[in-house]
Amino acid sequence: MSEPRNTTPHALRHPIRAKGEPRFPGGPAADPAGSHHERRIRSFQPRRSRVTAGQGDALQRLWPVWGMDIDGHRVLDLDEMFGGLPVVLEIGFGMGEATAQMAADDPGTGILAVDVHTPGQGNLLALAERNGLTNIRVANGDAIILLREMLPPRSLDGIRVYFPDPWPKKRHHKRRLIQPDFLTLAAQRLKPGAVLHCATDWEPYAEQMLEVLSAHPHFENTRDDGGFAPRPAFRPLTRFEGQGLDKGHKVHDLLFRRVQPQD
């Protein structure tokens, strides 16, 4: 005998949300910074994809504890947020597996992980709870607003940008995150000696990163030969990266230290 057809109206099975209403009440906001910030070219695009039951549960339970929206209305007290730990900002963490691994391997460092991908936010929160990781905070929104308006000068012990969108079409290169203006802003928030660590498997973008980082007066290459660095042991090999390597992609790491400019 066939199962009875579900005759519940679609609107009741999948309630329609008003524009701007969050998918998870008490969770990450749909547009945390609102319209009071200037319109500019973004380096990211929010992706719509299905949130699993486990991810949704983590968002609703754990967002008030370990999550925050990037609204641009306040300056964060990182010492209070992380109990005095040194703090590294990670921009773009995907599904969060590598972030969770780095947090587990180095519990003495706080990771402020920023992304706009709701399933990834829920997944990272779930991983943090499952593995007892109290040194992770998950931020939702635009990393530029976070850096510019919510972090004090010289408050970060590092910045990680792993596999950002390469925007491969020439007309989209202006959307790439690693640009001179971004580096100037990042330098203002990094402590002297802190490292900006980038990784990409898109070779033309790697070359551009190397060029703009090498030319910036606030950064110096940690490599004496001025080139790319081998993958450091603390950066886990992600599933995405492994798939790329299987296809013959070459991954480039760049580690540049924050320095004082010469007068």
Rank of each mutant, 00 (worst) to 15 (best):
M209V: 14
D201S: 10
D253Q: 07
T222M: 05
D105L: 03
F44K: 00
G244R: 02
R137M: 11
L124M: 05
T109S: 12
L133A: 10
T7F: 11
G227K: 15
F240P: 03
T184M: 03
H252N: 09
P204Q: 00
K174T: 11
L62W: 01
V259H: 06
T7N: 05
M102F: 14
L254A: 11
L62F: 13
D115F: 08
I16W: 14
G27N: 04
D157S: 12
D71H: 09
G122P: 14
I159S: 12
P164M: 01
L146R: 14
P107I: 00
K170R: 15
G110N: 02
V87K: 07
A206L: 07
S2L: 04
K250Y: 11
G110T: 09
T8I: 15
L254D: 11
K19R: 04
E203Y: 05
Q262H: 08
L196E: 07
L156W: 14
V138M: 08
S155A: 07
F182T: 05
D246W: 14
A58N: 03
I16C: 10
F234L: 04
D79E: 14
F256Y: 08
L156N: 02
T184E: 14
A215T: 02
Q179K: 15
E129L: 12
D115L: 13
F44A: 11
A187P: 07
R148G: 06
V161G: 02
P236N: 09
G96D: 06
S35H: 10
G26F: 02
W202I: 00
F24H: 13
F24T: 04
L127N: 12
D71P: 02
H197I: 04
P4E: 00
Q55G: 11
L237S: 09
R154M: 10
P86G: 00
P232E: 10
L196V: 15
G67P: 01
T134E: 13
D225W: 10
L85V: 11
E203Q: 07
G34F: 04
P261S: 05
I178E: 00
F182H: 02
H218Q: 08
E220W: 06
S43I: 02
F240A: 12
T134D: 13
V75T: 07
R171A: 08
V161D: 03
A206R: 12
A30R: 01
S43D: 08
L85D: 05
L255I: 10
K250C: 14
K170S: 12
G27D: 06
M150Q: 15
A199H: 10
F24I: 09
A11V: 10
E90N: 07
M81A: 04
L59M: 10
N131W: 10
V138Q: 03
G120V: 05
R154Q: 15
T134Q: 15
Q243V: 11
G242P: 00
N140H: 06
N6L: 05
L147D: 12
Q45P: 02
R48C: 08
